[in-house]
């Protein structure tokens, strides 16, 4: 009998926590209790960086993290947070679940991690205190919460906004005091933690779709039998369904806050075009700045996109 410990910052009652628990239950059932996954959620083992480091070193067996801490294993991974990376939702899903192992697998292996599947974070939206950002110029000169990634920084600079990098837990207090006026956050996550209560104007900018990772420490993986490795495939099998659930829940939550009278703004084609135009050429610039590893990573992504169609 083997027990593997899986760590995540996601609350256990969130869609991510529930998915992890359901995978654990399925594996327990499939293996007749031979292989157990103990999910430790709610950031009990620390923030995402800490969890990822513990996974690399085999202190926890399985880690579920967003794209943000992945820059620990290589700054080039930031390419995945660049705006409008994918042409359509379907293309993004196809790249994530059919090609990501080829694209990012080697980087993870180098860091001592074996990918199990890829984790949907949802689309980024824009939360604002005063007014929605119908076009990105609305953010010009404003203090804007961004994630601590080079791609978010570059995008904020493009928009003429003052990008203030901070963790997700600092965002609500910063919006409250006015330390920032707007925030880029994944929509589902942002609403789940109550960001809309301090920054009610939600612009559904859907400008990025970061993909996180579920991976097992190589140190733990080596100790598993072939049979046990087989059972772990439940992660991979249920990945795409989890992605659909997250995207669906995000939409449902947006509708719910909209129904409660909150100003949720959906962009028309012209506005979307303006948002997209604001990030034109940004990816190439960023890749050049990040070096050859990023160039080849982007090449792989483009090949996968072509393969998936639009």
């Amino acid at each position: 009998e083997t027990t593997l410990r899986a760590a995540t910052v996601a609350p256990m009652n969130s869609p991510w926590g529930q998915w992890a628990q359901s995978v654990a239950d399925q594996i327990a059932e499939k293996s007749g209790g031979e292989l157990k996954i103990e999910v430790i959620g709610d950031a009990q083992l620390g923030d995402e960086q800490t969890i990822l480091r513990q996974g690399m070193k085999g202190r926890v067996d399985i880690v579920m993290v967003s794209n943000i801490p992945l820059s620990l294993i290589g700054q080039e991974v930031d390419v995945f947070s660049t705006p409008y990376l994918f042409d359509t939702v379907e293309q993004g899903t196809c790249v994530a679940y059919n090609h990501m192992s080829d694209i990012l697998g080697p980087n993870l292996l180098e860091a001592g991690l074996v990918p199990l599947t890829w984790m949907e974070i949802g689309h980024y939206v824009t939360f604002s205190k005063e007014a929605p950002a119908l076009t990105p110029d609305a953010l010009s000169g404003k203090k804007l919460r961004v994630a601590a990634t080079t791609s978010d920084e570059a995008f904020a600079r493009r928009l003429g906004a003052v990008g203030v990098p901070m963790g997700t837990s600092d965002t609500i207090p910063a919006l409250q005091t006015g330390n920032v006026e707007s925030a880029f956050l994944p929509g589902l996550f942002g609403i789940a933690i109550g960001t809309h209560k301090v920054a009610p104007h939600i612009t559904v900018s859907d400008h990025a779709r970061p993909i996180g990772t579920v991976a097992i420490s190589e140190r733990s993986y080596k100790k598993l039998s072939d049979q046990e490795k087989e059972w772990l495939k439940v992660f991979e099998e249920t990945g795409p369904a989890m992605s659909a659930t997250i995207l669906g829940t995000q939409e449902a939550l947006l509708k719910k806050v909209e129904g409660a009278g909150l100003p949720v703004v959906r962009l028309n084609d012209e506005q979307i075009a303006a948002w997209k135009a604001s990030s034109e050429g940004l990816r190439e610039e960023l890749v050049e700045q990040l070096g050859p590893k990023a160039v080849s990573l982007l090449e792989k992504i483009e090949t996968a996109k072509a393969d998936c169609g639009s």
Binding site: R53, M56, S71, L72, Q75, G112, A148, P165
Partner: peptide, 10 residues
Amino acid sequence: NFSDRVPVIN
């Protein structure tokens, strides 16, 4: 060995 790094300042 794990080439651990500080994000942002790389």
